[in-house]
Simulated scan of single mutants.
Amino acid sequence: MHQQLRQDEVRSPPPAVLARDLVKDFGDTRAVDGVSLAVPAGTIYGLLGPNGAGKTTTLRMLLGIIDPSSGTRRVLGHDRPIDAAPEVGYLPEERGLYPAMMARDAIAFVGALRGLPMAEGRRRADALLTEYGLGDWARKPIRTLSKGMAQTVQLLGTLVHRPRLIVLDEPFSGLDAINQARLEEMIRGQARDGATIIFSTHVIAHAERLCERIAIIAGGKVAFEGSVDAARGRLRPIVRLCTRAHDGPWRAAIPAGARREGRSWVFELPESGPEPLLRALIDGDAGIETLAIERPGLHDAFVAIAGDAAAAAMGSQEAAE
C-alpha cells in the first residue's frame, strides 16, 4: 500500500503555481490576508471577486512583481518567481502599448521583453494575427486600433513567446461582446495546447464558462478554493414544479420555505431526493404538469460563499462597464 501511494505521488504533477498564507500590507492596510491556493498544471484557473478584493495584489505577488509581507509562493517549480519569468506571459490590468508601433512590432516587442529575438517575434506575430483572422492588422499603428483591437494585440504579445503559464488580470474589462468571445476562445486554445492560465475577473459568467477551478476572494481572504462543481455543490438543487391541482394531500410534500413564481412552486430539492417527492406528488393527485430540477449556478454559489455585499459589488462593477 505504501509503495502504491508513492507511485501515485510520482505520477501526480506538482501544481504550476502554489501559494501558502500570502499576506501583503501597505502601511496600515492589509490588502491580502493569508491567501493560499494551488493551480494545477494545464488548467484554466480563475480568481473571482469584486474590485478591491485583493486579486491584482495576489497576482503580482505570485509573479514576483511585489514581495509578500509574509507567506511563500512557488511558480513553475521556482521558489523565486522571477526565475520563471521567461516561461510566463502576463497581461496586466493597466494596458499600455506604444501608439506609433505597428501591431506586429508591438507583439514582437512584448515577446522581446521575455527574451524572444525581434525577428522571430515578428514572424510569430504575423502567424498569430493570421491564426485569429486578424492578418490585416499587422501593419496598422496601435493608435489607429479600437480599444478592443489594441487589447487583443497586447494579449497576443503575452502569448508570442509561447509561455507555459499565462496570467491575465481582468482581461475582459472594457471589451465588447465580440472581443470577449474572441478572448475566451484564445484562452481555451492556449489551454488545449497545454498552457496553464490564471485570470482574475469580477464577472461570474466568464469564470463559469471557462474555469475548471476557482478561488473566490473577498476582503483579501480566500472564501473558497476548488472546482466550479464543488462551489455549486455547496447548494442543493432547485425544484420548479407546476401542478394542475391547487390543493390536496400532495401539498405536504412541498417544503415550508417554498415560494411561488407565477404558477410554479420553487424550492430546494429535499435531502431525501427526487423519488420520494415524486411519489408523494403522484399519490396525492397533484397532477404534475412540469417538474424541473435545476443545478444552482456559480452566481448563486458565489452569493452563498462570499455574501450579498460582495455579490452586489460585483454586480455594480459589471454594470458600470
Rank of each mutant, 00 (worst) to 15 (best):
H2G: 06
P13K: 03
P13G: 07
P14G: 02
P15M: 09
A16N: 10
V17I: 10
L18V: 02
R20K: 05
D21N: 08
D25T: 01
A31V: 07
V32T: 04
V32L: 07
V32A: 01
V32K: 00
G34E: 14
L37R: 05
L37H: 08
A41K: 05
L48G: 08
G49N: 15
G52V: 10
A53F: 11
A53E: 15
G54W: 09
L62H: 09
L63A: 12
P68L: 06
R74P: 01
L76G: 03
H78D: 05
R80M: 08
P81E: 12
A85V: 04
E87G: 06
E87T: 02
E87M: 06
V88I: 13
L91V: 12
G96K: 03
L97D: 15
R114D: 05
L116R: 02
A119F: 12
R123T: 11
R124H: 08
A127R: 13
L128Q: 14
L128H: 10
L128S: 05
G133E: 13
L134K: 02
G135S: 04
G135M: 03
T144W: 13
L145D: 09
V153N: 06
Q154L: 10
L155T: 15
L156H: 13
L156K: 07
T158P: 01
L159T: 09
V160R: 02
R162Y: 08
V167R: 11
E170R: 04
F172L: 03
R182T: 05
E184R: 12
M186K: 03
G189W: 10
R192C: 01
D193H: 04
D193V: 00
T196L: 05
I197Q: 10
S200C: 02
H206S: 01
E208H: 01
R209A: 12
E212W: 09
R213D: 13
I216E: 08
A218H: 15
K221Y: 00
G226R: 14
G226H: 09
S227E: 12
D229Y: 00
A230W: 00
A231M: 06
L235C: 11
P237M: 05
L241Y: 15
T243H: 02
R244M: 15
A245M: 06
G248T: 12
W250F: 15
R251P: 01
A253W: 07
P255A: 06
A256K: 06
W265M: 14
W265I: 03
G273R: 08
G273L: 02
R279G: 03
A280C: 00
L281K: 08
L281T: 10
A286H: 14
E289N: 01
L291D: 10
R295D: 14
R295T: 15
A301G: 07
A309C: 01
A310E: 12
A311P: 04
G315F: 03
G315Q: 11
S316A: 12
E318K: 03
A319Q: 13
A319M: 08
A319Y: 13
